[in-house]
Design a protein around this nucleic acid. Structure first.
Lengths: 151, 151
DNA sequence: TGCTAATACTTTAGGTTTCAATTATCCCTG
DNA sequence: CAGGGATAATTGAAACCTAAAGTATTAGCA
């Protein structure tokens, strides 16, 4: 009835399971390192804003972070409430909103970004430089593939 | 002030970013393939149950799927409401609950598991068998590392 | 100019997720 | 055999997340 999986298909399913497992294990660890400070999604937004002093729109953030714009509304609301970021309507196109860091937000980034960066490096420090390079290359290949399927 | 990142640290941060990006891109695609049927977390639970006719406890599911037990309560509630699974208290230890598939749930699994498996294989079909093998090996190494940090 | 379609964000409904606090049960030791 | 500590699941609060519908605003074109 069911046509059985080819070994090549099985290998790919196994790859997906491993990818998901690594992601979730790492996520769990990194989240706990950030916990007292801010949430992971909030960090992701802050880190993007930090490298764009001119501000970012919801659309561009949504694209970079792979989350829906509807989702960002809430995250930015909370950042705004904490005084770390603020909205600014684009006067040239009043549909668009720029999100920018406040001074407090920038200061905060200067503290937690290096800290979080260090956590990541430490978490992955057990891998050889060689393995890291191989993984990066192969994942780039995979990302290119997945990007293409998106359109 | 800030001591700058070594190139080896930078490489590891880049690896994490790529891993997260691939995970999220793939997740987005696979979710939409499953959408009309059930949610991804529900699928994950069903797929585990399908290979354990004797049932699984919340604790063991929690461990396998890397989610908290509190989270599973809700997911299993919804599966139960849909008539796909049911709870059964362990008479030998009334603290434990076995979760099992109903007939309807088993039938349902027979339909969607092959379908989802096929979606995964198709999504990753653009990678060479060689790249798949390399990635699997390297991710196994990474998972072992992350597992160890967990304890 | 004025209508229509597209774009940008928000809202809503339904799930998911975590952490922390509870409840129920079991185990163990005095 | 009773109390204290561990284990299993649930509950509650807050945040995240998506898809789909809604609201403003802009752009394009007849």
């Amino acid at each position: 009835m069911e046509n059985p999986l080819s070994s090549s298909e099985r290998a790919r399913v196994g790859l997906w399971i491993r990818l998901a497992r690594c992601y979730n294990l790492a996520m769990r660890d990194l989240r706990s390192g950030l916990r007292e400070e801010c949430t992971m999604p909030q960090f992701d937004v802050l880190a993007q804003l930090e490298r764009s002093p001119e501000g970012l729109t919801f659309s561009s953030l949504s694209e970079h972070l792979l989350v829906t714009a509807g989702n960002l509304t809430g995250i930015v609301d909370r950042l705004e409430k904490q005084g770390l970021a603020f909205r600014e309507t684009n006067p040239k196109d009043r549909r668009q909103t720029f999100i920018k860091l406040t001074d407090k937000g920038r200061e905060y980034c200067n503290k937690i970004i290096p800290q979080h960066t260090h956590d990541i490096a430490k978490l992955l420090s057990g891998l050889s430089d060689n393995t890291v390079q191989n993984l990066r290359g192969d994942l780039d290949q995979l990302a290119a593939l997945l990007d293409r399927k998106q359109e």
